[in-house]
Nucleic acid binder design. Structure first.
Lengths: 132, 132
DNA sequence: CACCCTGCTATCCTGCAGGATACCGGTATC
DNA sequence: GATACCGGTATCCTGCAGGATAGCAGGGTG
């Protein structure tokens, strides 16, 4: 490999690092991506979302929803039925995240398998690498 | 859609949410994935990594490297040259992360474009959605 | 021997993500 | 008129991820 090529691949690598950092920054947090996944089958109401995410408190859910809306990933819809109904739905832009959530989801599944396998090997001592 | 189908797709969705949460938990943090990307072109030494990641402090870098090693993503190699050299290299298992880093990187790039476009529209007011 | 590089560790500090708990105004169900 | 569901807010609290700064042992370089 020539020096020129090395330089180019290094620069490329730096760019990719920056891109990953940008992405992590934009979708940082424990709940943003899970919310996007939860909404991927269709709009949900506040409480429905809360139930889907199991242990998120309303305060946190509300905050995350606001941020997601501000960043153009979801849309809040109010219907003046009685009593008023509110739903949250993905925007078209959130589709760009599809590949991210898919690969993360796939990886999460296979990683869980991997950890199970590993803990079976070293059992009975339990691994602590699976989140609580 | 039958109720049965609804139930199945709901269950599937819950599984995917859990999988994404697992993944986020495992690769959480500001530096783990960037480190993996940095090492993707070949092993690097401690200081080289530090430079590639620009503003990570040695304390934090050291901590992240230890965690990555503990979780089987990287390998620390010590050579008894004089003075001793240390490199960090990806393990085969870290290959499973390739798709994740790729889609995150791609998305980060396109998201940056998107934000630029958006801020050009509403300029001169600057957007604060790009990280500092 | 003065000074730089590497590969860290030690100490100390701080913000804020995320949580716990409680509550509110409105509706409708019994 | 009590109780329950919805869509949140208001307050208060806490840990810990991540950073700032300093330093050290071991060697290399002039």
């Amino acid at each position: 490999m020539t020096n020129e090529q090395t330089r180019l691949s290094k620069e490329n690598c730096l760019k990719r690092i920056a891109a990953v950092r940008d992405a992590l920054y934009a979708v940082s947090g424990k709940w943003k991506l899970p919310i996007v996944v939860a909404l991927s089958e269709g709009p949900l109401r506040f409480k429905e979302l809360q139930r889907a995410l199991e242990d998120v408190t309303p305060r946190v859910l509300s905050k995350e929803l606001k941020e997601l809306e501000l960043n153009g990933f979801i849309e809040r819809r109010e219907y003046d039925t009685s009593p008023a109904t509110v739903t949250y739905a993905l925007t078209p832009y959130s589709d760009t995240l599809k590949q991210v959530t898919k690969s993360l989801g796939d990886w999460g599944l296979q990683h869980r398998e991997y950890l199970m396998e590993k803990s079976r090997e070293l059992s009975p001592a339990q691994s602590d690498s699976l989140h609580p």
